[in-house]
Nucleic acid binder design. Structure first.
Lengths: 244, 244
DNA sequence: TCAAAAGTGTTGCAGCTACACCCATGC
DNA sequence: GCATGGGTGTAGCTGCAACACTTTTGA
């Protein structure tokens, strides 16, 4: 057995210490090219150096020496999409030996949601048109990815869909006020199945997650729906880390 | 904005890169000193060097250059308690700037369960008697801990108690065969409240998590209870990472 | 007046809780 | 027998799914 005292690190010991990187799976809802329906999309960057040169990969990079983990995730997100996340959470630390063909890398991966209005109308559009090495992909129709990023995206998708059912993260995809139909469409797009409007309404209202603004959305060709806003008195994440 | 290409690391760049450590929150069920009832306990090690010298801390240490993250967690667990975990799962990566008073450290923390029979009858006992710098503590009555380890333990406790309600990790605390009363006692000790025996039985049986062995436990002063074993056909963790 | 979505009411099923009750063993 | 936990039965509550129905707007 080697060294046992906690927090003692031997940078020049046997072998070079594993490098540390932070990557982020960024989700946004956009109309799908194929079906035209709303679907989950994630931005990927094309690798311009070995290993896995030419393959698509998650945005990410090294952790700054004076930077919190989530700050690094935010920074790479901004570099890639010119957006700020409306939700950001740590996903997992991936560090298996064989996961990079080159040097040993431990990646701490975050997942983020960006709101649809930001992604479509914001500067991201310029980015999508401009840089050929960054592109949004349908999350359920991805090309082969570098490293173990395919596994990572699968896991992030599972976490997003699981968390959707007991949390209020759906609001992170839309603006500050919304109709219950819009909120339901977000749920439907993420979960990939239709939901009963009546039951969805009752479910959301009884959860206290949402409060009516008193305003109505006009301009539709039918009865104007009430506008809602998220109830800021309720914290979206039951985890104690969210408060720590 | 700094470097943006993924996986590129600058070891000699601005500032020294953060060190990487692996720590583990180890849970076992033992009779509490104060009440005599079964309660969650975790082993801590006393720090023998700065920072936080003299305080208790989670077992852990640096990641070996050729070692998977979970292997490192297992190794530190074995070094500290001479035990092998019956359950091991990654908890979270802690990397805030100020969390260590000394050099910047990113800790990838695991949580583990060890079975009661192992912990009480195994070589761990020798360890508890022998090394004054390692000791089991009641998880709900801990001394002040080094670093942010108090926060970490709180989070691990929350995860354990939350996961207990929808998963079958309770079996990791007991032997390969058990009565439903023993399983219920584990749940009660972890959750800290009593459960209805009749409803607990139905809940467990209907989940298919457990199968009767056909044997009965004798030597009690009442009707001999059936012995059960966990159904190995059902995987304990719904996460896709458990299969990857 | 009609189409379309907003919003409400109602019924039935499934799962859980509480608690009454019988069963099998040691003493 | 009696005490003790093992094990079963059951009534009531709650929450959710399904779906019928009414309301309010634009065209």
């Amino acid at each position: 057995m080697t060294e046992q005292h906690p927090m003692a690190v031997s940078p020049g010991g046997v072998g070079v210490p594993p490098a540390l990187a932070v990557s982020t799976v960024i989700f946004s809802l956009m109309a799908s090219d194929s079906t035209g329906r709303m679907a989950l999309h994630i931005p990927l960057v094309r690798r311009i150096r070995e290993p896995y040169r030419g393959l698509w990969a998650l945005p990410g990079g090294p952790l700054g020496a004076d930077e919190d983990l989530s700050e690094a995730a935010r920074r790479h997100l901004l570099d890639t999409t010119a957006l700020s996340p409306t939700y950001l959470e740590q996903l997992y630390a991936f560090g298996a030996r064989g996961r990079s063909l080159a040097e040993r890398v431990v990646s701490i991966v975050y997942w983020a949601l960006v709101s649809r209005s930001n992604a479509v109308e914001g500067p991201a559009n310029a980015l999508v048109q401009g840089d050929p090495n960054v592109c949004w992909f349908d999350a359920d129709d991805l090309p082969p990815l570098a490293f173990d990023h395919g596994t990572i995206v699968d896991y992030a998708l599972w976490r997003l869909r699981t968390k959707m059912e007991y949390s209020r993260i759906a609001g992170a995809f839309i603006g500050s006020t919304f109709t219950l139909s819009q909120l339901r469409e977000v749920h439907e797009a993420v979960l990939g199945r239709e939901l009963d409007p009546a039951n969805f309404r009752r479910m959301v209202e009884s959860s206290d997650a949402v409060v009516p603004t008193g305003e109505y959305l006009t301009g539709t060709k039918h009865r104007p729906p009430r506008l809602y806003r998220y109830n800021s008195a309720i914290d979206p994440d039951p985890s104690p880390l969210a408060r720590a």
